[in-house]
Computed example of a mutant assay.
Amino acid sequence: MRIFLVRHGQTAANESGLFYGSTDVPLTPLGVEQSTRVAGLLAQVSFSAALTSQLQRAQHTAQLIVPLAERDPRLNEMDFGRWEMRHFSSIAAEEPDAWQLWVDDWQNATPGDGEAFPRFAERVRAVADELSLRQEPGDMLIVAHQGVLSLLLTRWLGMPTASLWHFPFKQDAYTMVENRDGFMVLRAFNDRSPFRSDE
Score class of each variant (00 low, 15 high):
residue 2 R to P: 03
residue 4 F to C: 13
residue 6 V to T: 02
residue 6 V to R: 00
residue 6 V to P: 00
residue 7 R to I: 09
residue 12 A to N: 12
residue 13 A to W: 00
residue 13 A to K: 03
residue 14 N to A: 04
residue 14 N to W: 00
residue 16 S to C: 11
residue 18 L to S: 06
residue 18 L to W: 02
residue 20 Y to V: 03
residue 20 Y to S: 14
residue 25 V to L: 13
residue 25 V to D: 12
residue 26 P to Y: 08
residue 29 P to A: 12
residue 31 G to F: 01
residue 34 Q to F: 03
residue 36 T to R: 15
residue 36 T to D: 09
residue 37 R to M: 09
residue 38 V to M: 03
residue 40 G to S: 11
residue 42 L to G: 02
residue 47 F to L: 07
residue 48 S to G: 15
residue 50 A to G: 06
residue 52 T to R: 07
residue 55 L to D: 05
residue 55 L to P: 07
residue 56 Q to R: 15
residue 56 Q to G: 09
residue 59 Q to R: 15
residue 59 Q to Y: 03
residue 60 H to T: 15
residue 63 Q to T: 08
residue 64 L to I: 02
residue 64 L to H: 15
residue 66 V to H: 02
residue 67 P to W: 07
residue 70 E to R: 11
residue 76 N to K: 10
residue 77 E to R: 07
residue 78 M to Q: 13
residue 79 D to C: 09
residue 80 F to A: 07
residue 81 G to D: 08
residue 81 G to Q: 08
residue 82 R to I: 11
residue 82 R to T: 10
residue 85 M to L: 15
residue 86 R to Y: 03
residue 89 S to G: 06
residue 89 S to R: 15
residue 94 E to P: 04
residue 94 E to R: 10
residue 96 P to I: 00
residue 96 P to Y: 06
residue 98 A to R: 00
residue 100 Q to W: 07
residue 102 W to G: 01
residue 103 V to N: 11
residue 106 W to N: 09
residue 106 W to C: 10
residue 107 Q to G: 09
residue 107 Q to A: 14
residue 108 N to R: 15
residue 108 N to V: 05
residue 109 A to K: 01
residue 110 T to A: 04
residue 111 P to Y: 10
residue 114 G to S: 06
residue 116 A to C: 06
residue 116 A to T: 02
residue 116 A to V: 01
residue 118 P to T: 04
residue 119 R to E: 09
residue 119 R to I: 05
residue 120 F to G: 09
residue 120 F to Q: 10
residue 121 A to N: 08
residue 122 E to K: 11
residue 123 R to Q: 08
residue 123 R to Y: 04
residue 126 A to N: 11
residue 129 D to C: 08
residue 130 E to A: 14
residue 133 L to C: 13
residue 134 R to N: 12
residue 135 Q to Y: 11
residue 136 E to C: 10
residue 137 P to I: 09
residue 138 G to D: 04
residue 139 D to K: 11
residue 140 M to T: 15
residue 140 M to K: 13
residue 140 M to D: 04
residue 142 I to M: 11
residue 142 I to H: 07
residue 143 V to D: 00
residue 144 A to D: 11
residue 149 L to Q: 11
residue 153 L to Y: 00
residue 154 T to K: 04
residue 155 R to N: 08
residue 155 R to Y: 06
residue 158 G to C: 01
residue 158 G to I: 06
residue 159 M to Y: 05
residue 160 P to C: 05
residue 160 P to M: 07
residue 160 P to A: 10
residue 161 T to G: 02
residue 163 S to A: 14
residue 163 S to L: 02
residue 164 L to C: 10
residue 165 W to I: 08
residue 166 H to K: 10
residue 167 F to E: 06
residue 170 K to Q: 12
residue 171 Q to C: 03
residue 171 Q to T: 10
residue 172 D to Y: 00
residue 173 A to L: 03
residue 177 V to F: 02
residue 181 D to P: 01
residue 184 M to G: 05
residue 185 V to H: 13
residue 188 A to T: 08
residue 190 N to T: 08
residue 194 P to Y: 00
residue 194 P to A: 12
residue 195 F to V: 11
residue 195 F to G: 13
residue 197 S to Q: 15
residue 198 D to I: 10
residue 199 E to A: 15
residue 199 E to D: 13
